[in-house]
Design a protein around this nucleic acid. Sequence first.
DNA 1: AGGGTGATTAGG
DNA 2: CTAATCACCCTC
Length: 200
Amino acid sequence: MSGSPDLSVLAGDVLDVAPRLLGAHLTHAGVTVRLTEVEAYAGQDDPGSHAFRGPTARNAVMFGPAGHLYAYLIYGMHVCANVVTGTPGTASAVLLRAGEVVEGLDVARGRRPGASDRDLARGPARLCRALAIGLEQGGADLATGPVLLLLATDHGGPVESGPRVGLRQAAEHPWRYWLAGEPTVSAYRPAAPLRRRPAG
DNA sequence: AGGGTGATTAGG
DNA sequence: CTAATCACCCTC
């Protein structure tokens, strides 16, 4: 009877939940994206996760119930969005890396001047830009909005997996999942090596 | 190939 | 307080 979609599946293990988000629809402010690429972050067990070192003010929402939005600012200018998974107390989440704009194409184009349609939401910060997701949306309940998640009953194609993008820690885990053959999947970019201190 | 940008974090 | 890091994007 509820008007909200059932997101209870998100309370499961993040490695199980992440691929199931592929094909899901994410809607905000007049634009809907079909997710084509995601990455799993396994909380305090995962050196690549923001929650690895325990709760802080920034990552607090990850320790809460599943189905909420964890949004953060990176490199001083870009916002990235995650879906919190697992049970309260665990801090796992899924980074939304890329999607295909399936609704509100003109609105999305206006938010991403100069970008091709393929690139509108191709990359985690681009996806947030196309959907106008900012830090204000952090903590939002994805079942009730304003950012809404509608799970897919079907992926719509085979899922592939490989190493996560841009991580220096725990880069060996194949916890990035994408829909095979989708042009909106972002290119794999290994982490840049640390700039070495001047040698003595 | 390199630069922009500022919050977040650990450490003194 | 300081200094290092950062789940990225754009332009050249």
